[in-house]
């Protein structure tokens, strides 16, 4: 059994939010629910400063805080490492939304579209979501499993890879089996450039980031100036 993981290369990411949109489209998430989102931060002080775009989503932690607080067992970690929510069990208490240190969980409060009435697309897309339950990124589980059934390799074959990964305009996202030492994600995690959000936190995210490696150059200021 694989242990799915993701690597997001911040040296490649330009913060375009293409992943956020690919996720909205693939998963048909209702308004306000962005399983994957892109935050933008500034690091440093003028002129030695850089803008850091940061895609954030469910980290599919090995020790998920959300799973620990869930009273119903709706949140569970599958054998392949995907943290998923069973929308038939969730009672919508939102303890997990608050417990997640990454802000990756969303409560689907009411069946409402982006406009006064649901558009044709929204009618079609929102079917899989259950009002009154909590939702979040599931590593495109359905897509990955359908791909596996067809003998495809997640992270390599488009049809078996999460939408945010194969769509990324800067080729900055990688998906694969962290238990396979030769997978791209494993190699990247071992590259020395990888880190996890909230270092020292016991949750142990399975979504890793690669450092942008930016030098905070003095922004056009010479030594001694």
């Amino acid at each position: 059994m694989a242990r799915w993981g993701m690597v997001i290369d911040l040296a490649r990411c330009i913060g375009c939010a293409g992943c956020q949109m690919a996720c909205k489209a693939e998963n048909g998430t209702p308004p306000g629910i962005t399983w994957c989102r892109v935050e933008v931060k500034d690091i440093g002080n003028f002129p030695a400063v850089r803008r850091i775009p940061l895609p954030v989503q469910c980290m599919h932690c090995r020790e998920p805080e959300c799973e620990k607080v869930c009273p119903t067992g709706a949140t569970e970690k599958t054998e392949s490492g995907i943290v998923r929510v069973d929308s038939e069990l969730c009672m919508g208490c939102r303890a997990c939304v608050l417990a997640c240190p990454y802000g990756a969980r969303y409560f689907y409060e009411e069946k409402k579209g982006y406009y006064e009435t649901l558009s044709l697309f929204e009618e079609l897309a929102y079917k899989r979501h259950r009002v009154g339950t909590v939702t979040k990124c599931d590593f495109c589980q359905e897509r990955v499993e359908r791909g596996l059934d067809q003998g495809l390799k997640p992270g390599v074959d488009r049809e078996a890879t999460p939408a945010c990964v194969f769509n990324c305009m800067t080729k900055g996202r990688f998906f694969g089996d962290l238990d396979d030492p030769r997978s791209t994600v494993s190699l990247l995690v071992a590259s020395g450039r990888a880190f996890q959000l909230l270092p020292g936190h016991p949750s142990d995210p399975q979504v890793y980031y690669l450092t942008p490696g930016t030098t905070l150059s003095a922004g056009g200021r010479e030594d001694g100036k």
Binding site: Y115, F121, R158, N167
Partner: peptide
């Protein structure tokens, strides 16, 4: 090459905007 910017993916919302 099979990749798309945010606007391109979000085109559905332009297409079906009730306005």
């Amino acid at each position: 090459m099979g990749r798309l910017c945010p606007k391109g993916t979000a085109g559905i919302m332009t297409m079906y905007d009730p306005n």
